[in-house]
Design a binder for these strands. Structure first.
Lengths: 327, 327
DNA sequence: TTGAAAGCGATACCAT
DNA sequence: ATGGTATCGCTTTCAA
């Protein structure tokens, strides 16, 4: 009977008469397979979990989760899976946790997509150790653990931007770091540095982290004003903006004297049309689902991080090297 | 052993030593209860389904689903349940269905909250017939079936607005109907009519449905211009607006000559600050969860529709009867 | 080809 | 007080 339900009719070579007989009986009795029992037996449910370390809907209007979820829902629907939203809070601290007094709550779903700005690395490690199939949106590195991440390809994007600067004739460039010790920032920096080396550019970045408000080191700014570099790449808009203002205070203009590119997405209606990245959040969500299902179909496979390309958006803050610039 | 896990330690009067012994064994072996098996056995999962007849996230920015989901997630989290988002589409037509070739897909969850502008009544009826525990947000009446709905209390709200008009001295009032044959509109109308009767007011509503663009019948408008009534209640803002403009064209002003109240929520930044309702969407979401869980805890209970009060928002379009009005 | 039976993991009841 | 066992509904294997 399961053979008929499972659709193995061809493989098992069941007489057509029998198939019809069973199908009629099914209709007659109003038989409905029980997904829970099915899951207990086969381990599959067509349920994919989504675990966010913060509440989703209250923030859905904001960009961070929303676009990811859009892609996740979209793709899940396409491949005929449902989504389990793990919402119930774990501890009294309000932070959401995967494990509630030792129990992995995600277990009802075949696997899960995890995301959140404040992912708990200990929980990720434990999840991996338990062999639970999951994918994390955004790179999270946990020593001694290989977790599968789906990540915007910041490294390539940063390199592409440096390449573009080099193509435009810039030879002395700098990097405005957010000073945040997080994987995605490390990715950007790595892309920048490898491209700088490859193109034989001179790196004239500020030494320390930015001051309060994202204002760079004054001494370094003076060097920039003296023409020490002609282009700058910034981790974030909140770094680029004070930088541009500091330049203006010293009589320099963007992009006339210094080109500036931002390594993150910038709202289309921002006051300055920065050259920036378009972070493919929706696509990342879709890819996360596909990666997760791949993991489920081939449990043994060792999946490395999946990179989703970023689009480089040309704005009004990058230009060719001006004639007047000191060599 | 289940006794210890289930926390029935007090009831079963198990020696403290044994409890500790088992708890240590649990930790030792890394035992983790399997929610699927649990569900199979007990029928409960702490999973609540959310079925929308359209995709949620793509519309999340819009008001319709968003506020409901906010309340749903919030309350589910509070009572320690997770949410299953039923996203996978049913047929090729793109419409989402509960039943996919006969299988009730909601069965993985203990029960479900259904919502959607285009709810499929046949599916609701079948769900009810199958004995699946669910709650519908918004009133849906299906002949021969009692489905539990959680609904904004439009009827009382409409009555309250009429009461307020009566208190302000209005004796001749009218109702601008959207002409939509839907339960929530019927609720509003019923509230209006019962209050009109109770307060002994004269009903001077237009005869037919509004014309294109929500413009009322011209003959009726002329009667209004002649002072046939002093207050109007409208199903929706798109009816109130053309009405006010038609009045203006006839030299009448709102609320000087005619008071107008709208029986739905109006955006706070709307050009006109209508007297209107505040539809408690978030609270409706919360109540839906509580009602559903109540249904699960007491399967036999026959729950009637649950009404969630609307707040009447005072704007600038309702005033007392002016002296000059014809008696 | 078809039917019978074992087992997935947890709970609840009935023996001990 | 504790250990054993039937049961939830399904899939899969093994016999007939």
């Amino acid at each position: 009977m399961s053979r008929v339900i499972g659709g193995d009719t061809d493989a098992a070579r069941i007489p057509e008469a029998t198939v019809r007989r069973i199908q009629e009986a099914i209709k007659e009795l109003g038989y409905v397979p029980n997904p829970t029992a099915r899951k207990l037996r086969t381990g599959r449910n067509r349920l994919l979990g989504v675990h966010t370390f913060e509440a989703v809907f209250p923030r859905a209007r904001e960009d961070f989760y929303f676009e990811f979820l859009l892609g996740i829902e979209e793709r899940a629907e396409e491949i005929d899976h449902d989504l389990v939203l793990f919402t119930s809070t774990g501890g009294a601290d309000g932070r959401r946790r995967v494990y509630r007094d030792g129990v992995n709550r995600l277990n009802v779903a075949d696997g899960a997509v995890l995301l959140g700005v404040a992912a708990d690395r200990a929980e990720l490690a434990r999840l991996e150790a338990d062999g639970y199939p999951f994918v994390h949106i955004g790179r999270r590195e946990v020593p001694g653990t290989r977790i599968t991440c789906v990540v915007p390809d910041y490294e390539s994007a940063a390199a592409a931007i440096v390449d573009r600067l080099a193509d435009l004739g810039h030879t002395r460039v700098g990097y405005l770091s957010a000073g945040i010790d997080e994987e995605s920032y490390a990715d950007r920096r790595r892309g920048y540095e490898s491209a700088v080396a490859r193109r034989g550019l001179r790196d004239v970045s500020p030494a320390g982290p930015p001051g309060p408000g994202g204002v760079p080191d004054a001494a370094w700014l003076d060097r920039v004003a003296d023409g020490a570099l002609t282009a700058v790449v910034a981790d974030a808009e909140w770094l680029a903006h004070p930088f541009a203002e500091a330049l203006a205070a010293r009589g320099l203009a963007v992009p006339r004297d210094v080109s500036v590119a931002v390594l993150e997405g910038v709202a289309a209606d921002a006051p300055v049309r920065w050259d920036c990245l378009e972070i493919p959040r929706r696509e990342v969500g879709r890819v996360a689902i596909d990666t997760l299902v791949g993991l489920l179909d081939e449990p043994g496979r060792d999946v490395t991080d999946v990179l989703v390309p970023c689009v480089v958006v040309e704005g009004e803050t990058v230009a060719g090297v001006s004639e007047g610039s000191a060599g």
